[in-house]
Write a protein that binds this DNA or RNA. Sequence first.
DNA 1: TGGCTATTTTGCTATAATGCCAAATAGTAA
DNA 2: TTACTATTTGGCATTATAGCAAAATAGCCA
Lengths: 112, 112
Amino acid sequence: MEKRLKDKYQLHAQILKALSHPTRLFIVNELENGERCVCELQAMIEDDVSTISKHLSILKQAGIIEDRKEGLNVYYHLKLTCIPTFLFCIENMMMEKTKQQYKLLKESVKTK
Amino acid sequence: MEKRLKDKYQLHAQILKALSHPTRLFIVNELENGERCVCELQAMIEDDVSTISKHLSILKQAGIIEDRKEGLNVYYHLKLTCIPTFLFCIENMMMEKTKQQYKLLKESVKTK
DNA sequence: TGGCTATTTTGCTATAATGCCAAATAGTAA
DNA sequence: TTACTATTTGGCATTATAGCAAAATAGCCA
């Protein structure tokens, strides 16, 4: 594969990889409703705060979210607003996949 | 986080993870133009065939592509056709990100 | 300043992903 | 059957990721 092309896909893959974690998807979904500070997210997710901070830094580094300091708190908000549409798309993919699996299952029972 | 919610995001993350690799993104892009056999993909990508076969199995297992045998060859095609739209969306995200980085850079030069 | 709180960073361990090679499988054709 | 080709699988070394706990950092207030 050409280097230029490979580099392009490398960049795309980085964004996708940043989104490829249940906790990070939760965070992105939550930020669709407005900015949240780390402690708010921590209360919802219930993982160690250091773990959540790392997830946030991965999303930030990928350019998906941005932060803003206010006193002791750090508030995060979505930067790439196209993400919700994208996740909706994934949702539909999942539905389609499940529907077909169900259909296959039903048929396999019928023909038994 | 609630178990049901976590499971949902886990499923989404699986699909995203399957897409989070430059070679796999290349494959998905290529399959947008129609089905391809493993040897055709191998000729384009130039990695070991076994490596490509593994990437294909990851995409297949995620429900993104499907295969069809014809003689000695195995042809793969896109199953989740929403993927191209999705990748286009990522592309726009990237553009936006780069544009802003460029703007910041330009401003930092100006104020020096 | 010192103490308190929110967040990030570091160190560590366990687990998963990558990619090559060699071996196995499957289909074709002599 | 044997030989050949396309593809997949297993084994292994290397590297990346996840998550906890402890330490470091940063801002606030007395």
